[in-house]
Design a binder for these strands. Sequence first.
RNA 1: GUGGCUAUAGUUCAGUUGGUAGAGCACUGGAUUGUGAUUCCAGGUGUCAAGGGUUCGAGCCCCUUUAGCCACCCCA
Length: 427
Amino acid sequence: MSAVVQAIRGMNDLLPDDTSMWQQVEKVLRETVQAYGYQEMRMPIVEKTNLFSRAIGEVTDVVEKEMYSFIDRSGDDLSLRPEGTAGCVRACIEHNLIVNQEQRLWYMGPMFRHERPQKGRYRQFHQMGVEVFGLEGPDVDAEIIAMSHSIFKKLGIADDLQLQINTLGNSQERALYREKLVKYLEEHFEELDEDSKRRTHTNPLRVLDSKDENVQRLLVNAPKLSECLGAETTAHFSRLLQMLSALGIKYVINEKLVRGLDYYNLTVFEWVTTALGAQGTVCGGGRYDTLVELLGGKPTKAVGFGLGLERLMLLLTTLNKISIRPHVDVYVVGSGENIDLKMLQLADNLREQLPQYRIMTHCGGGNFKKQFKKADRLGAKVAVILGENEIANHTVTLKDLLNQDAPQQECPETQVVAMLNMLLKDK
RNA sequence: GUGGCUAUAGUUCAGUUGGUAGAGCACUGGAUUGUGAUUCCAGGUGUCAAGGGUUCGAGCCCCUUUAGCCACCCCA
């Protein structure tokens, strides 16, 4: 309660109950990306500031006012990464991973944005990201969307998320549309709200997803991006939609989905939920075919997505799809003279021979009632009992804690491992 | 960054025009010195977010700060 030392605003501690659930989710994420043959990348958390301003776009909010930037001791302008794609692309260029070859990569870790914190939006948050380089077809777009879908299926929330999808066309098509849209917006400039007025000249496509009702009414008659798209773009998009249907993935085309980072082109998508208020986007991504070249690499097609782990966790807990798991399988209890030493020895021996189980020794003494209560609270499945009788008989008693009626078994020391293994096998 | 709401025990929350804190759950010990549930008994574990002000007296009123939440903004 003392306010002397507090965590930084918007940066959270994950406590044991939290990490219990995070680890379950991280396991699903790792298993899924590995099932698709993707390889892990680990990039630094700090990069040169200009990497992000070049990659994400000078006039985006992320770069303009949300980065944790500082000058380090040697005078370099550095920033905590606000997202993962820029650093991943930089690393791939720097180590020649994408010259004449394709890469399918993933990463996971903390990102930093100085925004006003809210539920589902934090200053240090975590993303799992996927990036594919050197493949230009809609097949790989479909693959990563299917991968995200697979994650949600495994976590039991696929029905609670809606896939919204759109195509932004290539840069010529977008430039043409931008011109038309700006012209239209300027004709109705006085009807726009303040934010939309500002964006008309900085980032006009963002006016499309404005929440202002008047603006949305006005947009009904505005030029449509789809009217500016050429045959190639249309073919890419319709083929992608076909593939999604074939994979049994439902989608909603959202022509106003534009996304805030400048590097996207062609395919863009978001997985959104209504269960998290204003922070409903759990996963978002798309194609960024020009970014590698923009950052000094050989022109390389690319597509990827970012998945917000806090939002994912929030959704899972809100929908009761995840719970805290016990962190102990076996609890060693004991009573008698010098029993503490024997308990430690026994537990060590068991851990060596049964490394797959989590074995905890009761410390701090107390009567059996107290010790069993503790075992129960911890969710242990089996109690290993060492008492005076057992010491005298060179035995150990095993008790099945999940089945109250099961008789406990006293077995010779030499058979403990085998018996324990049998008891735990099906639990 | 803008506007608004909130902050009392581990937790969810009461707390009367201002009279120095209380309930449920949880937790600890005991009834039961070789055994988990239930029951019963006992225990309040608190700098009332922090700092300042008004007052004889502040959890309550005023100011500042901090943090959380809601919407905007933005995005994961």
